[in-house]
Design a protein around this nucleic acid. Structure first.
Length: 276
DNA sequence: AGTGTATCCTGCAGGC
DNA sequence: TGCCTGCAGGATACAC
């Protein structure tokens, strides 16, 4: 599910709800979402206070005092739902996996139907290493068209597969990879190294445009994704190719096609995105 | 190096 | 209604 825009929307909604709160205890309902032993997780989190809520790629980062960091990867169906005693009624949590209980009442629930998501509590140093391993933030200053072009030149992968690799660019998933390629007029199977400077510029622009527009719309809800307030995102109707196979392309009228490679569906318009 | 496949899990839509 | 298959915003490990 959640890609960068969904994670960003969750972070923004979570921040005012949990900033400054102190975690009294954790309740692990499904230990398989933990990337570390349950004991270590509980011990590291207990008694810590939330100093900040950030995003890195598709991950939600909760900074705690004492140099602790809770890193949440939402997987396909993960949600972070705050329920504060003095706040509005808590959104539905149908599949709670981990619950953080705050001093003075209220909680933050990591809910995940399929449990592909992960939760862990790291030290600042451990998290830094993990973050270094990831590619640049596509909406940040270190992501440039020139850098993208140079990075693409080193890979023989199909461009869509390349975009899904978090070590290359952080936060792009299958929906926005397909949308960005459509905006850039690049076929999803085109070899990364054959994307020329002009193509890299168009792709750079396409990635930024679609991610920013999706953030502005509060993300894309296909089924499970919800904001921290429990609301669905509003970007789905604006998707140009993802999930639209058989429909006419809004730009040129050609029929949008679906193909499968790399184990995932790819959607593209044969008219706007020719394969050389 | 890159690709296909399988794995983790649940739920839903569509065909019969 | 029930049963089956295929599919899903992710990530990783494995054999070629």
């Amino acid at each position: 599910m959640p890609e960068l825009p969904e994670a960003e929307t969750i972070v923004r909604g979570l921040r005012p709800a949990i900033l400054g709160r102190t975690i009294r205890a954790t309740e692990v309902i499904h230990a398989d979402v933990l990337r570390q032993p349950r004991r270590r997780f509980a011990d590291r989190v207990r008694g810590r206070t939330v100093l900040g809520v950030e995003r890195r790629g598709k991950n939600v980062i909760i900074r705690l005092d004492e140099d602790r960091v809770v890193a949440v990867n939402l997987g396909m169906t993960g949600r972070l739902l705050p329920s504060l005693d003095d706040g509005p009624a808590p959104p539905d949590s149908s599949h709670p996996a981990v619950r953080f209980r705050f001093q003075g009442g209220g909680a933050l629930v990591f809910d995940d139907t399929r449990r592909f998501g992960t939760v862990e509590c790291l030290t600042g140093g451990e998290w830094h290493l993990r973050s270094e391993w990831m590619g640049p933030e596509p909406l940040g200053p270190s992501f440039t068209a020139e850098g993208l072009h140079a990075s693409l030149a080193a890979s023989r992968s199909p461009i869509r597969s390349w975009l899904l690799d978090q070590r290359k660019v952080a936060g792009v998933g299958n929906i926005y990879a397909n949308e960005a390629l459509h905006l850039a007029g690049i076929h999803p199977e085109q070899q990364a190294r054959t994307v020329d400077r002009k193509g890299a510029q168009a792709l750079h622009r396409g990635i930024r445009r679609v991610l920013q527009a999706a953030i502005d719309a509060g993300g894309t809800t296909l089924r499970d994704y919800r904001t921290a307030e429990g609301e669905p995102g509003r970007y789905a109707p604006r998707l140009l190719v993802y999930g639209r196979d058989g429909e006419p392309c809004g730009r040129c009228g050609s029929e949008v096609r679906r193909i499968v490679f790399g184990g995932r569906s790819a959607f593209f318009c044969p008219g706007c995105q020719p394969l050389d």
